[in-house]
Design a binder for these strands. Structure first.
Lengths: 152, 152
DNA sequence: ATTCCTGCAAATGTTTTGCAGACGG
DNA sequence: CCGTCTGCAAAACATTTGCAGGAAT
C-alpha cells in the first residue's frame, strides 16, 4: 500500500522538474522517491540517514540542495515546528488542500489537520491588514490524546 | 509612547521570578529591561549586541539562558518566522490577547495582528482533533503594503 | 562536449554546555 | 556561607558553500 489514492507525487514532481529544465540526477531521484514513500514530514537528517542505509549514498549537501529546489517549485512544503529542525513533506497539485500540524509536547507526534474555515479566516485577516498573503503556517501545540490526562 | 497602558511588564516579570524562587541577577535584569523597552521582537543576537553597547556587558550564554527561563515561565513568547533565528517578545498577564505576525518576504517587516475569530477557530479545531492545545503559532507570509504592487 | 548534478569537506551561524569565579539572600 | 547567576570559551547542531569529478543530454 504505497501511495493511497494519490496520483503518484513522484511522477508529478518529475514532470514539473523536466518542464523547468532540470536534468535527471540520481541524488534528486533518491530524495524524491524517499519522500513519496512517507506519509509524514522528514527532516534533512532523517532523509540523509535513510538514504545512506539504502543502496544509494547521497551527500548532505545534495539533500539540502534538492529540498531547497523542491520547496522553491512548491513541490514540497517546509514544516517548521520550532525545534530548530526543518521538516519536508510532499505537496500535491493545486486543489488538494494543504494541511497544518498539531505537535505533542510530550511525545513529539505530528498530527496533521485541515480546516476550511481556518483558511477563510486567514484570508480575511490578510485582506483586513492590507497585505498580499501568499502563504502561511499554523502550528498547534499541546498534548496528543495518548499523552494527555483522560479528562478535558 | 513607551509602554502604552501596560502595567510595566518588568515589574510583573520580576514578581513572577521572585515568586518562583529565582534570585536577582544583573544579567537577567538587563535582558528584562531591554525587552520591556521594545515594542517588537528581538533576536538573541540583537539582545546581546545592544547590551554589549550599553554599560552592562552580558554574555551570550546568559542571554540564551535568561530567554529560556522567561519563555518557560510564559513571560516571553518565542517568535519563529522561519529564518533560523528565534525572536522574543514580552507576554503580558492573562487577558491581554496575544498576537501573531505577518512577515514580508521582501523587506522582512513584522506586522503584528490579533483576531478573536482566529483564536476561536483554533480552539474548535483542537477540540475536534481531540488534543489538549496549550499554545499555537500562526505566521502569515507575503508582501507588506509597501512592497506589494499597488493593486489588490 | 557542455552544462548541470553530486559528494566531500570546510565554513557559517545559531544555540548549548562546562567550568571557575562573582554575587545575592 | 551556600547555592545561584554570570561570562568566557569551546562544543554541538543545522545548514550553506567551494570545488573537483561524474553524469545526463
Amino acid at each position: 500500500m504505497a501511495s493511497t489514492e494519490a496520483p503518484r507525487w513522484t511522477a508529478y514532481a518529475n514532470e514539473r522538474l523536466a518542464g523547468e529544465g532540470y536534468r535527471r540526477g540520481g541524488g534528486r531521484a533518491a530524495v524524491i522517491d524517499l519522500l513519496d514513500a512517507q506519509e509524514c514530514a522528514l527532516s534533512a537528517q532523517e532523509i540523509e540517514d535513510r538514504l545512506r542505509e539504502g543502496e544509494r549514498r547521497v551527500g548532505r549537501a545534495t539533500v539540502y540542495r534538492v529540498l531547497d529546489e523542491l520547496v522553491e517549485l512548491h513541490l514540497l512544503s517546509k514544516v517548521e515546528i520550532g525545534d530548530g529542525v526543518a521538516r519536508f513533506e510532499r505537496v500535491f497539485p493545486e486543489g488538494t488542500h494543504h494541511h497544518h500540524h498539531f505537535v505533542c509536547r510530550d511525545c513529539g507526534r505530528l498530527i496533521p489537520f485541515e480546516d476550511d474555515e481556518l483558511e477563510r479566516v486567514l484570508r480575511r485577516i490578510a485582506r483586513r491588514e492590507g497585505v498580499a498573503m501568499d502563504g502561511h503556517d499554523v502550528t498547534l501545540r499541546g498534548r496528543c490524546p495518548d499523552c494527555a490526562p483522560a479528562a478535558g
